[in-house]
């Protein structure tokens, strides 16, 4: 499943015209409409808006309906967030509840107001 916020997508497209090299492609793999999936999706959206506003593309893939998706990825467990751009590929398993851990694992730029 590809879940895109249209407004965010427009912002993203605007931004990409300005700074192509700062584009982040993120995919969140979840398993069904579980509580953990819901939490991971909410956290991913919030973190992207906070730290990558206007220069990210976040897709959500549900392994329950697309088990084949794992063949082409390094996914071991769900939820897993994968950064496919910029290279190298980075991934983080879990519900993304620790902002610091997400920023470190995905090598995202750390803003001054990042919570510890």
């Amino acid at each position: 499943m590809t879940s895109r916020n249209d407004a965010t997508l427009k912002q993203f497209e605007q931004a990409i015209a300005e700074t192509d090299d700062a584009k982040y492609e993120l995919t969140l793999f979840v398993s069904g409409a579980s509580g953990l999936s819901a939490r991971a999706i909410a956290n991913a959206k919030q973190l992207c808006e906070l730290y990558l506003k206007g220069r990210y593309e976040l897709s959500v893939v549900d392994l329950r309906e697309d088990p084949g998706a794992v063949l082409s990825s390094r996914v071991l467990a769900a939820p897993t967030l994968i950064r496919s751009r910029p290279l190298p590929v980075r991934l983080l398993v879990g519900d993304l509840s620790s902002t610091a851990r997400v920023l470190r694992a995905l090598e995202l730029p750390i803003a001054d107001d990042a919570p510890a």
Partner: peptide, 16 residues
Amino acid sequence: EDTLRAIGAGEVDAFV
């Protein structure tokens, strides 16, 4: 290490 931490903390509900 992060993966194992997440597994240990119960942040995972499916495995491949």
